[in-house]
Design a protein around this nucleic acid. Structure first.
Lengths: 223, 223
DNA sequence: CGACCATTTGATATGGATCAAGCGATGTGG
DNA sequence: CCACATCGCTTGATCCATATCAAATGGTCG
């Protein structure tokens, strides 16, 4: 049951870039961008490559990750439609980025943004806001990693549900393994913890579809 | 043996601010700042307070930390002389900051920096560099927290030793408890791990004074 | 000297990892 | 159309790294 597959799913390989009209992006960064589509598990950029673009997710899900020498893999974050990635501190990417599902991404030339930021204060301000947002995301990740397994999974579900408590059903685009690598747990522990949260009636688990039955119970675990 | 105590250690309470000549700071942010001294364990700013200043550590050591509802305490980082703190994503501090030892800190008015950044591109660029640096620091912290206890302690020692391999002796200004709260370990585990590293001849432990005897062994654990 | 802290060290408990097996869904080739 | 391989997920049994509880040591300061 591939629940949250992609939109442009007939594009099964990197297709050649095509021009797109300037979208209203996060804020004032509304340059002409280049639209690209990636099939699931494709690499969008690699660790150590120069930061040439900012990437805005238009559809699908992207993960950033890093593999250490001994093969352990850490996922830095999941990026959903509307999220911006590739905003980093150094000139090279410290993580790589991969499509979780098929996805469409808008590539925004970094040098052009920087050049414009030098002339237009609002663009500079927006850049600062973007990297500040990324900083907060990573700080929250640190706080996640010191919690118990149950707290991590509960926090993760609330994070994926988003701030707006619209529906109670979420369709996770990623595998248990991905979740585990994000939370610093094994896939078995993720599975067991979901089962346990279901046993306590906090959620309902239907494979990748999760129904939040008791948000406040989850929030209580969010410590 | 208070090894790395402070410089202005006769100032035992927050003294009234006094003007200071414009120091050559990190880069282009060389405003007039206000010098303040704090005794060990004093709060420099609190979590949730508005971000009114950037803080440059001139002497001593500062830690940022956050206490969760259930009382667990996480240290976000240690800031040594030359380091800048208070550079955050949001308008309120997400962590509080406390003096580890007596210390002197230069307070730099945030609004003035922002105003100047709007007019002078190099200042804006420097701001971006500072927050980018902070982002990298936190990303490294995430990678720390998924390692084994021995790897965490080894990484910590190398981090405290600094990039320049000058001397092999480091004087830790903080307690085992602080180290544990930074590394996501208990103070007992920190102590035992140091003892174990000493047993393998990688280091020598004299309470807070640590001698690095075999850096490459530590670096090997740095995975 | 005595009180207080930071640190070390020991004994035991436990949460999550690891190893292993089974299951359901999906897709493929005969 | 079915047999089979594959993949993601679940569940069980066991192990181990680190937490927790507890006590002793040593240094510092009044």
């Amino acid at each position: 049951m591939r629940t949250q597959s992609a939109v442009g799913s007939d594009l099964s390989k990197r297709q050649s870039p095509s021009r797109v009209t300037p979208n209203r992006l996060g804020g004032t960064i509304d340059f002409l961008g280049t639209l690209m589509s990636f099939p699931g598990n494709a690499e969008i950029y690699g660790e150590g490559e120069p930061v040439d673009y900012f990437y805005k997710v238009l559809s699908g899900t992207v993960r950033t990750c890093k593999v250490s020498i001994d093969g352990r893999r850490q996922i830095g974050g999941f990026y959903l439609p509307g999220d911006m990635l590739g905003v980093e501190g150094s000139a090279e990417h410290t993580f790589s980025a991969e499509a979780v599902t098929d996805c469409q991404v808008l590539l925004i030339n970094r040098r052009r943004v920087m050049a414009r930021a030098a002339r237009e204060t609002p663009v500079a301000r927006e850049l600062l806001r973007l990297i500040g947002h990324e900083l907060e995301r990573v700080q929250d990740h640190v706080l996640l990693l010191i919690k118990s397994a149950e707290e991590r999974v509960a926090s993760f579900l609330l994070e994926m549900a988003g701030p707006a408590p619209e529906g109670n059903t979420i369709n996770l685009p990623m595998t248990r393994q991905d979740i585990g690598e994000y939370l610093g747990l094994t896939l078995e522990t993720v599975s067991r913890t979901l089962a346990h949260l279901q046993a306590t009636a906090a959620i309902e688990v239907h494979s990748r579809q999760i129904v939040l039955r008791n948000r406040s119970a989850l929030r209580r675990l969010n410590a």
